[in-house]
Write a protein that binds this DNA or RNA. Structure first.
Lengths: 119, 119
DNA sequence: GACATATATTCTATTATAAGAATATACTTG
DNA sequence: CAAGTATATTCTTATAATAGAATATATGTC
């Protein structure tokens, strides 16, 4: 079995760094294919291909204006990734909690040492 | 040029749905390779291979206990994905704001119609 | 050391890119 | 309709991955 197609879901679509760059660029607002290609330094066909993948998984929407195709970020798609990653949130928070608890413990030890040295 | 290796970063690593399932399972706590394989219904070699990818990108850590290899979730890796997706947060919030504004506008229109019908 | 348990590695077959080059399509304007 | 502009599609090449099967490695026990 081969790897899942890039169009199978948002996770596969954003695995490609160039497509993440497109999404980041589109936070500035709607852009044409050529604007995207120029800004990110790739050739027009590559821009079209990547945009098509993003469109298929719903990460962008497209509208036509004369010859131009204007692509716009569809944030709902990225929210899927956000929601999934957020389900792990308590795990890294717990880690930070444990680290903070450890640091506080160190401080208490330091203080105890200081007061012990007093007499 | 081919697709980036699955070990190139966390985004490529979690593109595979089976690896996401492993991460979700590991939220329950540290587990051995066989426990993971059994819980997720894949064969031992596949479990080992997926776990190795996750380890290489830092999404899990491993420790040895006799013959067993115990894998544990490393949430920092998922936080990278969370942080990236979170930079788009204002976009889906704005969308919801616009939707709410639109719904309120509809309601006001309904009310205006109702009062117009009164006389 | 022989045997059992737990895990990792290797090999194969199938599938799927991603970039580049060339070409095709769609729309606009003179 | 011819020429120009903007974008999409096709074809090629090189690379990579996933599952399965078979095998190798490491550790524990008798």
């Amino acid at each position: 079995m081969a790897r899942s197609p890039t169009t199978s879901d948002v996770f596969n679509a954003v695995a490609e760094v160039q497509r993440r760059r497109i999404l980041e660029l589109l936070t500035e607002g709607e852009k044409s294919v050529n604007q995207i290609a120029e800004a990110l330094q790739f050739r027009q066909p590559q821009a079209s291909k990547h945009l098509n993948v993003l469109k298929e998984v719903g990460l962008v929407t497209m509208r036509s204006d004369a010859q131009q195709r204007l692509y716009r970020l569809n944030p709902e798609g990225i929210k899927q990734i956000y929601d999934w990653s957020k389900t792990f949130e308590r795990h890294w928070n717990e880690r930070i909690d444990r680290l903070e608890a450890y640091l506080e413990e160190l401080q208490r030890e330091e203080q105890r040492k200081d007061t012990d040295e007093q007499p």
